[in-house]
Design a protein around this nucleic acid. Structure first.
Length: 565
RNA sequence: UGUUCGAUGGUGUAAUGGUAGCACUGCAGAUUUUGGUUCUGCCUGUCUAGGUUCGAAUCCUAGUCGGACAACCA
């Protein structure tokens, strides 16, 4: 059968192979239906993007459907705030659920009825013990559990009690409903799992209608079943839940159809943490400014940082789906965004650490407009004019009084080309006698070397970026580095992940000088600051009066690497 | 001393019994008005031991190592 996959890539992941086998066998009438089931208790991160791409991607590639279903079975943790951000992030990534927006809470009635049915079939009972007592009877992975003293209650008594639990007659934690399965199962999840608990916190959608709420295991598979899901894709830690998932579905099903749970490896990235709890901790302790801080691996953070949805989808496609617990190198993510931004970013000039250069043979008060390409990788984007004058700024790093071997930039007696302008040579400089700091440098330019003029093709080693001092405007630029200094910050048993926080993950550069065209920059644009990296406007701190730019990622820099080397 | 899932270069991922390939990283070199891009080359791999087979990364057995599992979380 023809799939959209075939013209995209050659190799398929193990889930696609399963799907194709089932399709070939005619399972479920060759229907493919997945779901993305976030819990609305936090912001989506790039690990969720991996799941989203799989869930929606499988549907897309096999002419199927993918539902969005909020797994909102725990009102004490969930909130509408997160529902909206989750929907926004999925759309931003480029996926759509075509109106099939569901909630586990949509099924509270059906789930309650199913629980009642299980009680009637003597497959569920009300347990009056507290959580400690229940836990102690659970046994351990190597020892069987023991029966609850309430396991043999009559159907009538269970029915009455469960109804009264939901009526609010009993305190939170005083009673639970348990499935009656097998206390000696080698799978802990099968040892009479709790399926309903009493919660009085109002639910974000159903308010105070319910006093009992289903547990994940009692809601997820059944919700899949109600929605006609064929493939319920989740992460590896749910492998032991599958037996229970199937058990409930088998009690529920009336024909051949049953959803199938398949587990894949979650995303781990070097130099970052991915758990919602830890990300929340970073927000609450003020390490970052919000869930959408540009250093966060959240989709909102990556978006603010300047990552494109294309680059994230591309990255996810490259790391693949397996059952191996992998730790993916962050450099692969960085290469994905560089690859995309290299194609689409407008090349502009910005100087982060300005050093004034006076071109002593350029007439005072004169200026001119020079032609420069917007993006050499995309010639169709055309050219624009940039102003040039007697005084310009270059990067402090681009001048050295005593340069080391292999330094291609400016030094006394040396010459360089100014990008899209002229070749200049340095004949003098001013140095602060006390601090030793270079304050100003003096150069002459060669009018014959104007870029694109067809004049003298002088060969110089280096080309520098620059801005015209009287035309440039000041802006703030924020440079980001990885949040953690350890490759696997939460992979140490004896050390807390916060011990590895990088104190230099944010560097604010308040006095950058930018070329005038950047004054009208907007949030939709991506830039390459020539020779520096990729940048975009910051959506939180930028105002029309004072612009703030974020560095998405630096350019590859073999010079710095060589120096440190 | 349980159950269960897994193991292919530094990292991630292909090869579905028939030439171990790709991407990232790293290292060289070429090109370049970005020390970017692009191009070329190089480095490095089937956890171990048996077995099945003409042939094993792939199948079988045992071992080693790693993960998950004892929330009224999802």
């Amino acid at each position: 059968m023809a799939t959209n996959l075939e013209d995209k890539k050659i190799s398929k992941n193990f889930i696609e192979l399963i799907v194709e086998e089932e399709l070939a066998a005619g399972k479920n009438g060759q229907r493919i239906h997945t779901r993305f089931p976030p819990e609305p208790n936090g912001y989506l991160h790039i690990g969720h993007a991996k799941a989203i791409c799989l869930d929606f991607g499988i549907a897309e590639n096999y002419q199927g459907k993918c539902n969005l279903r909020f797994d909102d079975t725990n009102p004490t943790k969930e909130d509408v705030e997160f529902v909206d951000s989750i929907k926004e992030d999925i759309h931003w990534l480029g996926y759509d659920w075509e109106g099939r927006e569901f909630y586990a809470s949509d099924y509270f009635g059906k789930l309650y009825d199913f629980a009642v049915e299980l009680i009637q079939r003597d497959l569920a009972y009300v347990d009056d013990q507290n959580s400690e007592a229940i836990a102690s009877q659970k046994g351990t992975p190597t020892e069987a559990g023991t029966f609850s003293p309430y396991r043999q209650r009559t159907v009538a008594e269970n029915l009455d009690l469960f109804q009264r639990m939901n009526a609010g007659e009993f305190a939170e934690g005083s009673r639970v409903l348990r499935a009656k399965i097998e206390m000696s199962s080698s799978n802990m999840h099968m040892r009479d799992p709790i399926i309903y608990r009493i919660i009085f916190t109002p639910h974000h959608r159903t308010g105070t209608t319910w006093k009992v709420y289903p547990m994940y295991d009692f809601a997820h598979g059944q919700s899949d079943y109600f929605e006609g899901i064929t493939h319920s894709l989740c992460t590896l830690e749910f492998v032991p839940h599958r037996e229970l998932y199937d058990w409930f579905v088998n009690q529920l099903k009336t024909d051949d159809y049953a959803p199938r749970q398949i587990e894949f490896n979650r995303l781990n990235l070097t130099y970052t943490v991915m758990s919602k709890r830890k990300l929340l901790q970073l927000v609450q302790t003020g390490v970052v400014d919000s869930w959408w801080d540009p250093r966060m691996p959240t989709l909102s953070g990556l978006r603010r940082r300047g990552y494109t949805p294309e680059s994230i989808r591309n990255f996810v496609d490259k790391i693949g789906y397996t059952k191996y617990l992998a730790l993916n190198d962050i450099s692969l993510l960085e290469s994905s965004i560089r690859e995309h931004l290299n194609q689409i970013a407008t090349r502009v000039m910005a100087v982060l650490n300005p050093l004034k250069v006076v071109i002593t043979n350029y007439p005072e008060g004169q200026s001119e407009e020079l032609d420069t390409p917007n993006n050499p990788e995309a010639p169709e984007t055309g050219n624009r004019m940039i102003p040039f004058s007697r005084e310009i700024f270059i990067e402090k790093d681009d001048f050295m009084e005593n340069p080391p071997k292999g330094y291609f930039r400016l030094f006394p007696g040396g010459e360089v080309r100014l990008k899209s302008a002229y070749v200049i040579s340095c004949h003098d400089f001013k140095k602060n006698a006390e601090t030793g700091e270079i304050e100003e440098i003096y150069c002459t330019y060669d009018p014959e070397t104007k870029s694109g003029s067809g004049g003298i093709q002088k060969k110089v080693k280096g080309t520098l970026h620059w801005v015209s001092a009287p035309h440039a405007f000041k802006a703030e630029v924020r440079l980001y580095d990885r949040l953690f200094m350890d490759e696997n910050p939460d992979g140490h048993k004896d050390k807390d992940f916060t011990e590895f926080l990088n104190p230099d993950s944010l560097k604010i550069m308040p006095n950058c000088m930018l070329e005038p065209s950047l004054k009208t920059a907007d949030l939709s644009q991506k830039f390459q600051f020539t020779r520096l990296g990729y940048f975009c406007l910051d959506s939180m701190y930028s105002t029309t009066e004072s612009l703030v730019f974020n560095r998405v990622v630096g350019l590859k820099d073999s010079w710095t690497k060589q120096q440190k080397g």
